[in-house]
Design a protein around this nucleic acid. Structure first.
Lengths: 339, 339
DNA sequence: ATGAAAGCGCTAACAT
DNA sequence: ATGTTAGCGCTTTCAT
């Protein structure tokens, strides 16, 4: 960036034969506050046109303490669950004339922390995040230090100034596993989870365990696999399950990527789905309907999450005060052909 | 953003008992240029620690004419082809301490233009774009007006200051269709394309037509369908093809999303793949290996594109001069089970 | 109704 | 080796 050639407000002022501050007044809205003659207004706009002037938002940010930027922190752009949140929020931001900064964390604490530091350095008006590690304290710090409004998808956050969207994924897991047991007659059920250091990882694990116990079924250690949300990890986990002397007849995976990996490897190993093993996923990404058999899954609604959170964020940016708001996002079991 | 509570360089200076410009000197690298006493350096760092100071990049940008931000303009974050470019570039940017702004165009000219205007308002150090509509002239304007370095994935751009990555997708299409004819014995081949206003849409259409003609086969109008890159449009196009009195025995789709939609609808309509219809896609997105049959496709290498372009961009940002560079990205036919 | 001037937080040229 | 000064391009008092 060398804006040597850039045209500034000063240039416009000179051409219009007015002072630079008059140009600023004409161009900034705040219409009624200070009256400006029609003649001047016209001359300024003509000069703007003629020079092709665009205001420099960096300068405006510095002065006005308002950046017209928001930031999004998500785990992984490759996952449709996240990128459809992002897409929705981008569209909302565009309407409000805000640019959007984006950061992936790859589910890592280190990157979440690095994101916070980046925000300290480059203030933005608002932050939408899906944190897996950040605590209320850290977010409080971010909030106070940057002045940004923050909204999050996170059941575990209780900060009084952070609007959150959340889903009862523990309960949904419980219900789905119970349905696998009561409705479908499964007894040997495998679990492809993720590290319990991830709040949703822990909640879904709890939901699973409680459902098994509520049905009087024990939890077999060898049925509890841990992946990392990726297709490849789902493949590995399923292979381990299927290599067992007595493999499960149903598998609950904590997201669709892992479920899809599980189905893939089951096919490769010659298993029939759902005949030999039933598989349930989580999220309802578009791919669930493209693979065969179509995946039974717990539907989340990322576009809805993005919309709720995005709009909440801009309401806050535009000055809305008041207590923390929570948006419960439903989860629905979509029964397809993998069960 | 109300940084009322933010700690500035002035605060650090006061606490360390030095002038603000000394703090600036200590904190900015450029180490040897001006020597600073160890004692002062130490005091400054202590003050920084104690106050938890972070430099304000907005202010730095304004003054230094260097934003530490890059922008990425792509068509659609939902498409793995694009988001894997983005992922790669984000990782590169992170290493160089640059934040990344991102914009989707949805393949629309209007949004590409809007993106250019956004860049006029908010200068960035570099722009990586995948333009479908912007011309060399418009990019020249962007370049001169913003001072940003620009790199692009675009075969049709020839601007002397824009490094480009490109693939011979016309030739790859020609080869793939020829292979369908000579290697697989197909004669009735359908085409699921996109608007020819998109340069790659035009090139792939030309590759298809030329391959048919080179083989002495005519091009049947009713076999030429037009989609919009989406799964849904591939479904519609394939349905139209299969509803024909004499449907094609092979279909070439201009991207994997449309190919996957095509396979999906073919299954639903009771067709066997590749028995009744063979399908070839374009891109080699991960989903091609998840669906059944696994999709035969022309592999592009988005991570490679992102890496080449991302590194080229930062080389330019860091001062590399010299003529336009072009990076040819190979395309390879991956034969799987859909043909 | 408009101009002059201060200053957002920083960097860099110019003093010592 | 460090302090002083002048802006980067804008918004916003404070004058007039």
């Amino acid at each position: 960036m060398q804006r040597s050639s850039a045209v500034t407000m000063r240039d416009v002022a000179k051409l219009a034969g007015v002072s630079q501050s008059t140009v600023s007044r004409v161009l900034s809205k705040a219409p009624s506050l200070v009256p400006i003659s029609d003649e001047t207004t016209k001359r300024v706009y003509e000069a703007v046109d003629q020079l092709g002037y665009y205001p420099n938002l960096t300068a405006r940010s510095l002065r006005a303490q308002q950046t017209n930027m928001i930031a999004i922190m998500i785990a992984d752009l490759s996952n449709p669950f996240y990128h459809s949140i992002v897409r929705t929020v981008q569209d909302i931001a565009r309407k409000r004339h805000h640019d959007v900064l984006i950061a992936n964390t790859d589910h890592s604490r280190e990157y979440e922390t690095a994101f916070c530091e980046a925000m300290m350095r480059r203030p933005v008006d608002g932050i939408l995040m899906v944190p897996y590690h950040l605590t209320d304290d850290e977010i409080d710090n971010l909030l106070r230090r940057t002045g940004a409004k923050i909204v999050a998808l996170a059941k575990h956050l209780t900060h009084p100034q952070v609007d959150v969207a959340f889903a009862h994924d523990d309960r949904a897991t419980f219900d789905a596993v119970s349905w696998l047991i009561q409705g479908k007659g499964h007894v040997r059920i495998g679990f492809i989870g993720v590290s319990k250091t991830f709040p949703p990882g822990l909640r879904r694990w709890q939901g699973f365990v409680q459902a098994m116990q509520a049905a009087g079924l024990g939890v077999r250690e060898d049925y509890m696999q841990e992946g990392d949300w990726s297709v490849a990890s789902g493949q590995r986990a399923m292979k381990a399950l299927l290599d067992l002397p007595e493999p499960p007849t149903a598998v609950f995976a904590c997201n669709d990527f892992m479920a899809i990996g599980a189905i893939d490897v089951a096919h490769t190993m010659g298993y029939n789905i759902p005949g030999d093993v039933a598989v349930v996923g989580f999220d309802n990404i578009p791919e669930t309907m493209l693979i065969r058999p179509k995946l039974t899954t717990l539907a989340q609604y990322p576009a809805e999450i993005g919309r709720k959170l995005g709009e909440a964020l801009f309401e806050r940016i535009e000055g809305l005060e008041g207590p923390r708001r929570t948006f419960e996002i439903p989860i629905k079991l979509i029964e397809r052909d993998s069960t």
